[in-house]
Write a protein that binds this DNA or RNA. Structure first.
Lengths: 342, 342
DNA sequence: CCAAGATATGTTACCGCTAACAGCCGCTGT
DNA sequence: ACAGCGGCTGTTAGCGGTAACATATCTTGG
């Protein structure tokens, strides 16, 4: 690794190299490359030409340090395999596209400790803002976020107290609404199936709201089944089978998400169970996948794209009027599909 | 923005603040925080205490610039909604976990121009390495990667010439193998369904290999159907319906991925078509989703996790012996499932 | 024709941290 | 007693850019 800096042809290039190659100062090169300040057309072209010829790639590390500006937005989500989060990400990317800001993703695997680490790592890059899923974090996490001095947007959920801003839906209300719709449709022996329940706070809140609705109608959950890990579709099948075997009189299954709901639906169809006549089904999220199923599962759209967009707008400062600390509630719509009897 | 640096309580903290709070030099604080060099236990504790009390978060921008070391690995993939890529990512993250390296993801949406931009942006952060899906890039992209002076690993595919290293499978061979298996099973009127075909080079290569196998057996594709966008499951249904209506004598459908294959399978089952008796089906990837389907779709595992792992190992320098430029070929296994007649 | 502004470029001083080296202390062996 | 060494801490000089200001050079109007 002995490299005499003036000879090594593979040394990484700096502004100085471009500056020498084009016969202007480093500052002028910097200006050209950032389109900032006045530079004559002739110079600009000469510099660009030199930069291209050399294959110069600016060093953002140095640039960020000098300018005290980092065009990154940290985005922290629990998982990439849930479909839901990539969609929020899409909303974020789309909106950030024309702001010069770039999202950087961190994944926590639903672990609060892991989340704490990821937040710390992200903050150490001094991003311009942070978007983070959920309202539940360790005290240390909340403290770090609060101290960071940048806009923080907690997304997906608004049932709780955000550190700064929040964009999402009320999952408790969503659960309640679904519960009410199911009861109104005449179902009475209602069961719940969920995955990741200990850590998926939003699924937990939906269940809470759901049970509220039941209890207001004088009902309680007829059965429940939880599981974590594995293929969601398969788990949905298995949980459904388990519940229906154990409690044959169950007439409705509410799932914590569409994927396991789809598994349940496929199971019921394969068993020749009358859906929604004998058993009704509902999931949550409104994932695209459902469009391809033989029958449309009842679900509620979680406004994922919109959540991503709004969050990104807050970070990008498109709400200049406000001081921060705003809470934007979105309202999901119930899509009855073909699995709740009309 | 007039901030007298010594008064503003919300100014972001620096090493100096911790240094003053603990009564040692900045250098010593730096050493403590990085666990580098000898520091007495007493000092270490005092510093850590001060850092924690203040809520100090190191500035990696400055650290990276000073040390000329960036613990980031750029990972560039076409899409997050394909399932396949998140899994590669998982393999990468798992392996990188204990190396102090951190993956940073960029998404290209299958656009070569977008890819070029993403590569440029990533390189400007001077990462320690890059992992990038596919072997097909613009000339400018290849040049940038080659010049970067860091390990580059192109993943998923090995049918082509990598810039540096590559880890993947031969999609051409995979397609050929599947074709041979299908012919061996006695199918003769074989059709192909694909999405994203213009830009998914790997799907294209599989089709090429597939057609090779057919032509070696004196056959040609009986029909083909392409589509982009929308719900893959639904598209699978629709394409299958289109093909079977247009070419009722088709006895096998080869799909460019499992998701549309699953859609096709659900369609056939719903139509009461005898699978695999009248029509055989096969997809590609071996996605977890398939486990939950009523019947197991024939597929080939694309070794995604393993690809991620191996790529990360190369970047992490676990193959110290080599000079770089290694090509690791993995071999997918054909999983006949229940949709090819035995 | 010259002051005053506009335009184009250069100079200086950092940004917050770390590599490299320098210093200091106390202990060891002889 | 003292050279020699290892453990611990401090000092200095950047890393590669950019903000802010300084310095030409060119216009332009009165």
């Amino acid at each position: 690794m002995t490299k005499p800096p003036s000879i090594d042809p593979r040394r990484t290039l700096t502004l100085r190299d471009v500056s020498e190659a084009s016969g202007v100062s480093e500052m002028t090169v910097s200006r050209v490359l950032r389109n900032r300040g006045d530079v004559s057309l002739a110079t600009r072209e000469r510099v660009l030409e030199a930069a291209r010829a050399l294959g110069y790639v600016p060093n953002k590390i140095a640039g960020a340090l000098a300018s005290q500006r980092v065009n990154l937005v940290g985005v922290i989500i629990p998982s990439l395999s849930n479909m839901v989060f990539p969609e929020v990400l899409t909303g974020i990317s789309d909106t950030l596209e024309d702001t010069g800001l770039q999202p950087v993703v961190g994944v926590t695997n639903y672990s609060p400790e892991r989340e704490e680490t990821v937040i710390y790592e992200m903050l150490s890059w001094r991003p311009s803002g942070m978007i983070i899923a959920g309202l539940e974090h360790t005290d240390a996490s909340r403290a770090m976020l609060a101290q960071a001095g940048i806009p923080i947007v907690e997304v997906m959920d608004i049932d709780g107290t955000p550190v700064d801003s929040a964009v999402g839906i009320s999952h408790r209300r969503a659960g309640r609404q679904m519960g009410e719709a199911i009861i109104a449709a005449g179902y009475r022996r209602i069961a719940f199936c969920g995955t990741m329940m200990p850590y998926d706070h939003r699924a937990r809140k939906r269940l809470e709201g759901f049970e509220e609705a039941l209890s207001k109608a004088g009902l309680t959950l007829a059965d429940r089944e939880f599981y974590s890990g594995g293929s969601a579709l398969l788990k949905g099948r298995e949980m459904t089978e388990a519940v229906l075997k154990r409690s044959p009189d169950v007439d409705f299954l509410y799932y914590s998400n569409d994927m396991i709901g789809a598994g349940g639906l496929l199971y019921c169809l394969a068993q020749g169970i009358d859906v929604p006549g004998k058993v009704g089904l509902a999931g949550f999220n409104g994932v695209e996948l459902l469009d391809g199923l033989p029958r449309k599962l009842a679900t509620m759209d979680a406004c994922r794209l919109e959540i991503g967009r709004r969050a990104a707008e807050i970070i990008a400062g498109k709400h200049e009027g406000t001081i921060g600390g705003e809470v934007i509630e979105l309202f999901p719509t119930l899509q009855p599909g073909d699995t709740i009897r009309g």
